[in-house]
């Protein structure tokens, strides 16, 4: 059994000790944002925030999140009511397939929390561990800078 806060709500999951946080979120708790990409912390598609810090959920055991606060996309806003960063991604149409979008938004959210007015270079460096195969990097950077400006 593991218990933590997910997007502000207390959640519990009866899972094996070595269950990765990613699969517990995605398959036990129906948090659909974080995605399996590599299982090796190389691509960033699984990124969530644990106590505000960007964390690769594919290589983090769920029990490491016990008692902590986990944030996924749904913690920033929803389909019908997007948060500031999510709205900026929509305004800039900053995706193609969108598979890696969740991880990028959470990684960028952590950047903006730490550094509300980042330079373009800061944004690119913060997202260097998030891979995009569709080639939307520049749109994503514009979205993050827009969110910072509008913040």
């Amino acid at each position: 059994m593991v218990a933590f806060k997910l997007n502000g709500k207390d959640v519990r999951a009866d899972v094996p000790d070595d269950a990765p946080l990613l699969f517990v979120l995605a398959h036990d708790l129906d948090a659909f944002g974080p995605k399996y990409g590599c299982g090796r912390a190389q691509c960033g598609a699984c990124t969530v925030l644990v106590d505000g810090l960007p964390t690769r959920a594919c290589v983090t055991q769920a029990k490491a999140a016990a008692g902590r606060s986990v944030t996924t996309l749904a913690g920033l806003g929803t389909d019908g009511k997007p948060g500031r960063l999510q709205q900026a991604f929509l305004t800039e149409q900053a995706a193609q397939c969108g598979y890696c979008t969740s991880g990028m938004i959470l990684q960028a959210h952590a950047l903006l929390e730490r550094q509300p007015n980042p330079s373009e270079r800061d944004v690119r460096e913060a997202l260097d561990g998030n891979l995009c195969r569709c080639g939307t990097q520049n749109r994503v950077v514009r979205a993050v800078l827009r969110a910072a400006q509008e913040g």
Binding site: A26, D30, G33, K35, L73, G80, P82
Partner: peptide, 14 residues
């Protein structure tokens, strides 16, 4: 895109 930035289930993987 609204579903994709909002974390709604939209992929086969979901």
């Amino acid at each position: 895109l609204p579903a994709k930035v909002g974390g709604a289930p939209i992929f086969v993987q979901d």
